[in-house]
Amino acid sequence: MSNPRIFPIADDALTIEFGQAIDLGCYEQVRRLEQALLARPFAGFLESIPAYASLSVFYDPEVVARAYPRFPTAQAAVVNYVEGLSHAPWTESVEAHREIEIPVCYDLRCASDLPLVAQRCGLSVAEVIAYHSTPTYRVFMLGFLPGFAYLGLVDERIAVPRHPTPRAQVPAGSVGIAGRQTGVYPTVSPGGWQLIGRTPVPMFDPQANPPARLQPGDEVRFVPITYEAWLDATTQTQ
């Protein structure tokens, strides 16, 4: 692993940063460190939250201080522990990625921004669909809404920015693009991403375990379906 930057974000949390870009190499370092930490947690460890190029670690300061009294503060003890893990030889295999297919209807009735994306990129609608549905995406992290997964990397040829002004309401299941990110809105919500499709698959179920369909590290492919197939599947899931 490269030398990360470690800094506090609260009295009971710190972040280990491997870079400042959406990059698969950085994310693999995040993933390795998280798995090493989960395999060998320190006393007082509570949870870890991965992002594109960083891992945030939360802990109980009182438990840490009691377990590692030679350090002046609990934070110093956690920093020392994390630094040791980040520099230790990696001997464990990285947990296998789940491979998940998500059906997406790219029909214009489900893709309000698709013509604008095509025009902006100098492509046909069919080309935008092909460039979006061909890659296998990695789930980098969850955020914004329960079950909202940030996926990348979107093909540079269709990497369009967010809308300057977000919509007040985006339908659940909408598939959007924001730069080199793509994702699915799990519930009705405001949102500024460019909407190029819609899936009938529920992305969040509070009764399921885990409730979010996608998890960090998953590999995802979007599979085009017809409007009729989307309509039928949507009816069945309601």
Score class of each variant (00 low, 15 high):
30 V>P: 06
49 I>L: 11
28 E>V: 14
24 L>M: 11
95 E>M: 00
61 P>W: 05
75 Q>D: 05
85 L>S: 11
83 E>Y: 01
33 L>F: 09
22 I>K: 06
59 Y>I: 10
62 E>N: 07
18 F>K: 01
36 A>K: 12
61 P>R: 01
75 Q>F: 08
80 N>E: 14
37 L>I: 13
46 L>Q: 11
55 L>D: 05
34 E>T: 01
95 E>G: 08
66 R>Q: 10
59 Y>K: 06
81 Y>I: 04
80 N>V: 07
46 L>H: 14
41 P>D: 00
48 S>I: 02
26 C>M: 13
80 N>P: 09
28 E>F: 09
40 R>S: 13
31 R>D: 00
87 H>C: 12
49 I>F: 10
58 F>Y: 15
23 D>N: 15
44 G>T: 09
55 L>M: 01
100 I>G: 02
22 I>A: 02
57 V>G: 14
36 A>I: 00
98 R>T: 05
49 I>G: 11
84 G>F: 12
27 Y>T: 03
56 S>L: 02
42 F>T: 06
88 A>P: 04
47 E>S: 04
45 F>N: 11
42 F>N: 07
45 F>M: 10
101 E>P: 00
72 P>C: 10
100 I>F: 10
38 L>G: 05
63 V>D: 01
44 G>I: 06
76 A>I: 00
85 L>A: 02
94 V>G: 08
46 L>R: 13
83 E>M: 12
70 R>H: 13
39 A>C: 03
27 Y>N: 13
83 E>V: 11
22 I>L: 15
82 V>L: 15
72 P>V: 00
61 P>N: 00
92 E>S: 10
54 S>D: 02
57 V>F: 09
93 S>R: 10
42 F>M: 11
22 I>V: 15
37 L>F: 10
72 P>Q: 02
79 V>C: 00
29 Q>I: 06
37 L>G: 07
26 C>G: 11
75 Q>E: 10
57 V>H: 13
52 Y>R: 03
40 R>Q: 15
50 P>M: 01
99 E>K: 14
77 A>E: 02
29 Q>M: 04
77 A>G: 07
68 Y>G: 00
53 A>R: 00
45 F>D: 11
59 Y>Q: 07
39 A>H: 08
38 L>T: 04
18 F>Q: 13
55 L>Y: 05
75 Q>T: 05
71 F>D: 01
21 A>S: 15
26 C>Q: 15
62 E>L: 08
33 L>W: 12
68 Y>H: 07
57 V>E: 12
70 R>E: 14
77 A>W: 06
58 F>R: 13
49 I>N: 02
72 P>A: 02
58 F>C: 08
50 P>A: 07
28 E>N: 14
27 Y>H: 15
87 H>Q: 15
87 H>I: 11
37 L>S: 12
95 E>L: 08
41 P>E: 00
87 H>G: 14
26 C>T: 14
60 D>Y: 09
32 R>P: 03
97 H>S: 15
24 L>Q: 10
96 A>W: 06
91 T>F: 06
34 E>I: 08
37 L>Y: 10
44 G>W: 03
99 E>T: 13
56 S>W: 03
69 P>Q: 06
90 W>N: 09
